[in-house]
């Protein structure tokens, strides 16, 4: 064989390979567990994007360890994929950079009190995997204003933080009511609180979770009241990049697993005992039947490890927002059978 012919053959082989690869890409089938999990395993740690610092969701304690509701989700994912909840590299992200960091591949998953929206799903090329916290935007005003409902806020000025969609929600709300509400945007909460306190604004606006925390920092918290209306839906949740649906599946089912665990009374403490249960849902979740973990490209113990690491959904919630944490009532964040909105898809 001459050199020229050998080159020709090589090129043809390469071309054939290329066609093969591109057809398989066209069929959109990625073998489980998908390239993201393979990269995570190779790296030995999960790169998890969290909030750079907000009480309740994600913050660093005095020793520098990450704590919070979203942080526990990172731990659950690491326990499921890598078998060790400690193998997480936390990347604190600001509101401005969070999606760019995810798009660029610097993090594998974004669990950062971020609202799941159409624009983020379609325009930004992300996947809205699961809602882990239902919030909504509300108002806190001075009692002395004599306002009892958000509908009476025509002409009022609200202080708030920049970097979210708070001002958009307020403009939408005002437009729908045919009124005007001015919004003053601050970079940091200190200045925003000071402006609200001094009377520059008639009130302060934020997600319901953060409003309770804001009220507690006012000089006289009893002078302030939180209006009953919630003017926007803020389903906070988990984002992944488009392109690896296997990884999105895993994240989706780990979230469902944590909620299912609460549904069936499986806790951090009793997860091993529950392996003796006869309930088929418990047995499937804990990997004794059905090979659910294997079908995702993990092992059957994956969900049990996640629950053992951080507890079920209710335990995760209580650790950050319960009476010992921020003291936020569960409300719509209860499971569906407790009057809430969390309704995990069944493991069958």
């Amino acid at each position: 064989m001459t050199k020229a012919r050998r080159t020709l053959l090589k090129t043809m082989a390469l071309l054939a390979g290329g066609v093969l690869i591109s057809t398989s890409a066209m069929a959109q089938s990625i073998p489980a567990p998908g390239p993201t999990v393979e990269a995570i395993k190779k790296r030995g740690e999960l790169n998890c994007g969290v909030d750079a610092g907000i009480p309740g969701f994600a913050f660093q304690d005095a020793s520098g360890a990450w704590k919070g509701f979203d942080v526990d989700y990172c731990k659950a994912l690491a326990a499921a994929v890598l078998g060790d909840p400690a193998k997480v590299k936390y990347v604190g992200t600001t509101a401005k950079v969070r999606f760019t960091v995810l798009q660029s591949g610097e993090i594998d998953v974004l669990v950062r009190d971020s609202t799941l929206t159409f624009a983020r799903d379609i325009d930004l090329g992300l996947t809205e995997v699961a809602v882990n916290f239902y919030a909504g935007q509300g108002f806190m005003v001075r009692k002395s204003l004599g306002v009892n409902s958000a509908a009476e806020l025509n002409g009022a000025t609200m202080c708030m933080l920049t970097g979210a969609t708070l001002e958009l929600n307020i403009a939408d709300f005002a437009r729908s009511k045919g009124t005007t509400i001015n919004s003053l945007l601050f970079e940091k909460s200190e200045e925003a609180f000071a402006a609200a306190e001094s009377g520059r604004c008639d009130g302060y606006s934020d997600d319901t979770g953060s409003l309770a925390a804001a009220r507690s920092t006012m000089k006289v918290p009893d002078d302030w009241m939180i209006l009953p209306e919630v003017i926007s839906k803020e389903p906070l949740g988990i984002h992944t990049r488009d392109g690896d649906y296997r990884w999105s599946d895993i994240v989706f089912w780990v979230d469902a697993g944590l909620k299912t665990a609460e549904e069936f009374g499986i806790t951090k403490e009793n997860v091993d005992e529950k392996k003796g249960s006869n309930d088929p849902f418990v047995r499937r979740l804990l990997g004794l039947e059905g090979d659910f973990g294997k079908k995702l490209g993990l092992d059957n113990e994956a969900f049990a490890r996640a629950i053992k690491a951080v507890g079920n959904y209710g335990q995760i919630y209580d650790a950050s927002f319960g009476p010992k944490g921020l003291g936020l009532p569960r409300g719509i964040n209860n499971l569906w059978n407790q009057g809430g909105l969390h309704y995990p898809l069944p493991f069958r």
Partner: peptide
């Protein structure tokens, strides 16, 4: 700030 955050076009 606002536009970047709303549009995501960083």
């Amino acid at each position: 700030g606002t536009v970047l955050n709303q549009s995501g076009r960083a």
